[in-house]
Design a binder for these strands. Structure first.
Ligand SMILES: [Mn+2]
Ligand SMILES: [Mn+2]
Ligand SMILES: [Mn+2]
Ligand SMILES: [Mn+2]
Lengths: 158, 158
DNA sequence: CAAAAAATGTAGCTTCGACTACATTTGGAA
DNA sequence: TTCCAAATGTAGTCGAAGCTACATTTTTTG
């Protein structure tokens, strides 16, 4: 039995309007890329945080990571196990967490990018508190091309 | 029995280095904010896509959303059900999806912000394809302050 | 050194977004 | 008007990320 609600005037595929020219990849491909960014985001924030803690204190404890990232220690422990699998960190039971060469390299790359994004936001006039907040999310969506443009801007306005 | 691996030289809380001045919220608060951004991201991309489809075709079908967002139609159907609960869209079985006033308002806001971010990236010299990709992710991490700064930059360099 | 506190580990739960496979409905074409 | 392809719905699975509660180990402290 058909639903008693009035159906829309145009019922089916209503003569798609002519597509405006799309230069880059299509929308679906772009959204796939965003989801990839997000799947890599956690690992990046973890190694960045671990590197910072090691710099500060010579070691990164799970509890420090939990505090810094604002999650429970369980979440940290489980994520760190995956980072071990992925070869970014080493970890022994009841001991601190350390970076592998691969982890150090990723941390270095992410830290540089993070600082570039932050400096760029400040340079275009974003207030410090907002810049620090936004940089933490934006950094994971900055392509090499955009990073290049940000560096260019910083160089021009130095 | 203690593990036979040598323990780290400094065993516990090793005299935390003096904190450099932190103006804004602490790291944990920032990361909470990012996770909030991400929890709102899907709804924003959906209403934006729905609005675009309605503009083009007078209605948004689940299959069109699936194509545009690069996910299966099941993912769309389930997310749309949650958007209905949240009051952003209306949807009858086997019919198209429409925006509520609330949904239209959110879509409008997101579209404007999206276009500002895109225009800004282009204005600072990011190649078009990269700008389009990056804007899709960055848009969700742009605070009102940063949006304001972007608009200021665009106004100054027009 | 023994007890208390802190850190870590483990078990089990929830939500969300993604998927495949299959069932049902709809709308247009034969 | 019947039939078929397309669209939608439904059931069930999975992995990631979050949580609480409780067990175990380590480190600090009395
Ligand atoms: Mn980050
Ligand atoms: Mn993001
Ligand atoms: Mn987006
Ligand atoms: Mn968008």
């Amino acid at each position: 039995m058909p639903p008693d609600t009035p159906r829309s005037t145009s019922t089916r595929r209503p003569a798609a309007a002519p597509r405006r020219q799309a230069a880059g990849p299509d929308a679906a491909t772009i959204h796939h890329g965003i989801r990839r960014d997000h799947s890599e985001e956690t690992a990046q924030d973890y190694v960045e945080a671990i590197a910072a803690l090691i710099q500060q204190s010579n070691e990164a404890r799970a509890v420090d990571l939990a505090r810094k990232l604002g999650v429970s220690h369980v979440t940290v422990v489980r994520r760190v196990a995956r980072l071990v699998e992925q070869g970014y960190v080493t970890s022994e039971p009841y001991r601190a967490i350390f970076l592998t060469d691969k982890g150090r390299a990723l941390a270095e790359e992410c830290t540089v990018r993070h600082e570039t994004v932050l400096a760029f936001l400040l340079a275009v006039g974003v207030p410090a508190a907002a810049a620090e907040r936004d940089a933490e999310g934006i950094e994971h969506h900055v392509s090499p091309e955009t990073l290049e443009a940000m560096n260019g801007f910083l160089k021009r306005n130095s």
